[in-house]
C-alpha cells in the first residue's frame, strides 16, 4: 500500500453531488470540495488497481464457471491432459447420471421444502419474540433477552450430540420433524428484529393501542409493514443458511429419500467414488445454482442482512 501517492478519486470531482453507482449499504459521500488534478501517480495506481481487480474477479468467478463447464463434459474430456476448456458437445448426460444414481428430484423437493418451512417458521418465531421483548412490558424481559443473546455464543457443535440422542430417542431420525425442529429457534433474527423495533417510534404503537388494536394486530398491521427491509434481510440470510446446512441433516436423514441436496452430494460421492467428476460436479451445480440466482437477484437485501451484525455491533 505504500506506493499510493495521492488520495484523489479516479473521477475528477466536479463539486456536484456524484450519484453513487453502488448498492444499498453504501453511504452517500459528501461532494468533493476542491478540484484536484489527477497526478501521474494516480493514473498508474488506478491502472494497477484495475489489473488487481480483474485478477481478483477472475479468481473468484472462474472456479464457478469451471464447475459449470465440467458438469457438461464427458469423463474423458474431464480427465484429458492438457486441459480441454470447453465440452465438445453440450448435453445433460451427467445430470441424467445423477438422477440414475440418487433420487435427485426427491432431494430437490426436500431441500426446498425444509428450507421454506424452516425459514418461514424461524422468521415468524423471531418476529413474535422480538416484538414481545420490545413492546410487551413484563418484569423478566431483560432476562429473556439475555437468554436469547447468550445463545449466539453457544456453538452448534456442543448441542449436536445431546440433540441427536434426543431426536433418535424420540424416533425422529428420517423425519422432516427431526431435521427441522431442533434448528428452529431464532437467536440471530430475534436479535436483529429487536434492534430494529427499538428504533420504531413508540407513539406509532401507542396510537394503534388507543385505536383498540391488540398486540397481534399491532405486530402484523403496524410493526411488520414498516420493518419489511429488516424482515427481508433476515429471511434471506436464514434461507441461505438453511439451504446450505449440512451437519445436522446428514446425521438425521439416513435414507436418501429424506436427504437434502448437500447431504445427497456426499452420498453421491460415496456411491460414485471420488473420480467421477462429471456426475459429482453436475450435482454440485444443482446445489449451488439456486443460491447464486437468489444472490444475484436479491443481492442488496441479502448483503444487508449478512453484514448487519457489523453495522449494528
Amino acid at each position: 500500500m505504500s506506493t499510493i501517492t495521492t488520495d484523489s478519486p479516479a473521477t475528477p470531482a466536479t463539486g456536484r453531488d456524484q450519484r453513487s453507482t453502488a448498492g444499498a449499504p453504501e453511504a452517500p459521500k459528501p461532494p468533493e470540495r476542491r478540484r484536484r488534478r489527477r497526478s501521474a501517480g494516480a493514473v498508474v495506481l488506478d491502472g494497477g488497481l484495475y489489473v488487481t481487480l480483474v485478477l481478483a474477479a477472475l479468481v473468484m468467478a472462474f472456479p464457478l464457471i469451471w464447475m459449470l463447464l465440467a458438469s457438461f463434459k464427458s469423463n474423458p474430456e474431464i480427465s484429458t491432459w492438457p486441459i480441454q476448456w470447453l465440452p465438445q458437445e453440450w448435453n445433460f448426460d451427467n445430470f441424467i447420471a445423477v438422477a440414475n444414481s440418487i433420487p435427485i428430484g426427491r432431494m430437490i423437493f426436500n431441500s426446498v421444502f425444509i428450507t421454506v418451512v424452516s425459514t418461514f417458521l424461524k422468521v415468524v418465531l423471531g418476529l413474535a419474540c422480538a416484538y414481545a421483548l420490545v413492546f410487551v412490558d413484563v418484569p423478566f424481559k431483560k432476562l429473556a433477552f439475555m437468554l436469547v443473546l447468550f445463545t449466539l455464543l453457544i456453538p452448534g457443535q456442543i448441542t449436536i450430540i445431546p440433540n441427536y440422542v434426543l431426536v433418535a430417542g424420540l424416533d425422529w431420525t428420517n423425519t422432516y420433524l427431526g431435521i427441522i425442529l431442533p434448528g428452529l429457534a431464532s437467536a440471530f433474527g430475534t436479535f436483529l428484529f429487536r434492534q430494529q423495533f427499538m428504533q420504531l417510534p413508540r407513539s406509532l404503537l401507542e396510537a394503534a393501542e388507543l385505536d383498540g388494536a391488540g398486540h397481534l394486530r399491532r405486530l402484523f398491521r403496524v410493526v411488520v409493514p414498516i420493518s419489511v427491509p429488516t424482515i427481508a434481510a433476515v429471511t434471506l440470510v436464514t434461507l441461505v443458511g438453511e439451504w446450505n446446512e449440512y451437519l445436522w441433516p446428514s446425521l438425521v436423514a439416513k435414507s436418501p429419500d429424506l436427504m437434502t441436496l448437500p447431504v445427497g452430494l456426499t452420498h453421491l460421492q460415496d456411491l460414485e467414488g471420488i473420480q467421477n467428476w462429471g456426475v459429482l460436479l453436475a450435482a454440485t451445480t444443482l446445489l449451488t445454482l439456486p443460491m447464486l440466482a437468489v444472490f444475484l437477484v436479491l443481492q442488496r437485501r441479502l448483503v444487508a442482512g449478512l453484514t448487519a451484525g457489523a453495522v449494528t455491533g
Binding site: M60, A61, P63, L64, V240, W243, N244, Y246, L261, P262, L265, T266, T284, L287, T288, M291, L292, V294, F295, L296, Q299, L302, V303, L306
Partner: peptide, 10 residues
C-alpha cells in the same frame, strides 16, 4: 461476495 452464500460442501 458470491462464494460466501454457497454451500461449504459444494
Amino acid at each position: 461476495f458470491a462464494p460466501y452464500v454457497l454451500s461449504g460442501i459444494a
